[in-house]
Design a protein around this nucleic acid. Structure first.
Lengths: 209, 209, 209, 209
DNA sequence: CATGAATGAGTATTCATTCAT
DNA sequence: GATGAATGAATACTCATTCAT
């Protein structure tokens, strides 16, 4: 092993994809930033798309793990489980802020390529959340609600801070990349949870949610 | 039949910029979609960048007009004026959904090019909103607040539906491109206005804001 | 029109394809030999393959015309018609010796690409020759024979001089690119015709044919 | 199980060289087909060219042996010796059909590389055949003839079936890779020998030769 | 008003090869 | 005996642009 270019390439790629977008980033940019030869990228990832796929799957593999780690809690309580999952995800996203932001943005492009890569993970995620939501409803912990709608609202809450960082910054007086942000934003999410999902508090729905 | 390539090019450009991003769209793509010759684009707009600038200025010129049309109301009431401005902008964005979405996304990239083009318009917009906010505060219509924060929150509210369409869709059960969406979302914005800006209601800060 | 690069490119391509093979020829080689920019090739022919296709179709279009020009003679006599066709083809091949040689060689590679391009023309050619052969047989001008076999023998006779030029050179003491070669070789083909196809002379089949 | 990559590589190389040509075959293609690592090729043969050379020399070494095995017969009769040599070569070529075809085709390209590798063997071959021919002429077994011409005709006869397989297939109703082909084609060669080389039959020159 | 010809700079990828292991 | 890491040079191709018409 001479240089471990692979890791350097991935790091450089994530940074550049985030700031300049996938299409706006050239393989040479990445190689230069990683102090490697452009062909090393082909060597490890076949193509630019292969590199993208690698970044995605690496991210999502760990992302899904965040949810899975909370699953055992489902037996003791759906609400606790859901909260834990959201907490895990939020912390994960904050410590992988570049990829989180990049994915959120690229998702808003109509690129089938990206969607194809991610669809498997999204299905997994959907499945886990539906399990929690349906379990909670069956047990009377949650209000009867369309789980689909709840899911999309959840996803919205989780991605918003990364696509609209200034908005969040000004409302919570804290930056998404700061460690402290997660704690603050988590409170917001829990407020929303109590207001719309949980049935214990009758909860006047808050303005936006 | 005259060919009016210019208009066709602009329409094609906006559609493609929106779906594939600026960097991901080639001049040939645009020309092909507009049934025109690539050099026709250079003829009318000099550059790819010139075409982008044209789309932007054309959009922002009309965007700013939406605010300006509400300005006369300032004398009768800052709140009324602000509300009108927000209403105008929202309706405008909904009827120019592709550009609105494109700009919101491209803004989240660190491309100085885009920022440069837009800075003049953003300054104008900022100036008008500050006028309204400061006038309202002076007159006691609005709570004393940092106008900067308020501005960024406003912008956040206005762009969010275009970057997170699914989120909005599920919360309001309506699609951003439907005419009916504006009405619904406007109610949300007014709720927010009353909760955070206006002083009439002492306003328990709503969940999200 | 500034340079008429198209023609220059085609000429250069044919020469290089012939001497170095398709795979062995680079687009830059061609462009250099044609005193043109490599991208001019993409401009006119899309790809390297497009250039190859152009060369092929241009060649075969004219090749087929050689056969078609002899077709009217079919009414007066199948033998005369066939002879005229062979004569035309031979003269045509000799004045397009590079392409003839290149095609003969490239055909012996197992490249589906090449085969696909040529299949339409080969079908046409086959159809015309079968017409002649079957007509001749029906009328008793030709011996009863499998037209398929006859066809392939004909093709073999026509391509052999270009794939095995030294062989021919030594046997006929003449070079395939010399104008005089066609006349000499034509005599051989006619001998073969009389020996194997025509029924008038009972003709002892010659050694090789 | 030992991997014996070397042999696998050579086999793969021959197959690919034959179907796609030397320039059209990449070292990775070969390695992939041989289930080996590309660098193993460099390890054994230094270069792509080295691999080619190996294939060639291995082939020609055995090729020349075919001629040499017939040489002892020269004392008893030049004709018998020549016939035996041709028989040996033909059988050899048929059991190494891929290399035979590849060499025949690559020879028709103007690549000095290939020619350089082969020149030594061609000189040897030439020398042996000239020996036979001159001996035969001196002894009156053969007609007085230019040995150069005879040689090239011989080579032509020997390579033709591999460059024009369809031609041969249809004329002799047999495929070059079938064992039975050699026997049939050998008859043709002997007919030609008797017609043009041997002086016993005064020989009316056959149609083609 | 608009376009076809042509291009230079750049982009992704391929390829043969090297070197340390 | 064989291979994985890494690369430089080349290759085909794309792209925005220019210029003459």
């Amino acid at each position: 092993m001479r240089k471990n270019s692979k890791k350097a390439i991935v790091t450089a790629a994530i940074a550049l994809f985030n700031t300049k977008g996938y299409a706006g980033t050239s393989i040479r940019d990445i190689a230069a930033k990683a102090n490697a030869n452009p062909s090393t990228i082909s060597y490890y990832f076949d193509n630019k798309l292969g590199l993208l796929e690698y970044c995605f799957t690496d991210y999502f593999e760990r992302y899904i793990k965040q949810i899975e780690e909370s699953l055992p809690l489902l037996d003791s309580g759906a609400a606790a489980c859901l909260k834990k999952a959201l907490e895990n995800i939020l912390y994960f996203q904050c410590s992988n802020i570049q990829m989180s932001r990049f994915i959120a943005r690229e998702m808003s492009l109509d690129s089938q390529i990206v969607r194809e890569i991610m669809s498997t993970y999204f299905q997994k995620e959907k499945y886990y959340f539906q399990e929690m939501l349906e379990t909670g409803m069956k047990r009377g912990e949650f209000r009867k609600h369309s789980p689909d709608y709840a899911l999309i609202q959840l996803k919205g809450l989780l991605t918003m801070p990364f696509l609209n960082p200034h908005y969040i910054t000004e409302v919570l007086h804290v930056f998404p990349h700061e460690r402290y942000f997660a704690e603050k934003y988590l409170e917001q999410i829990e407020l929303w949870l109590e207001g719309t999902i949980l049935s214990t508090t009758v909860g006047i729905p808050s303005a936006v949610s």
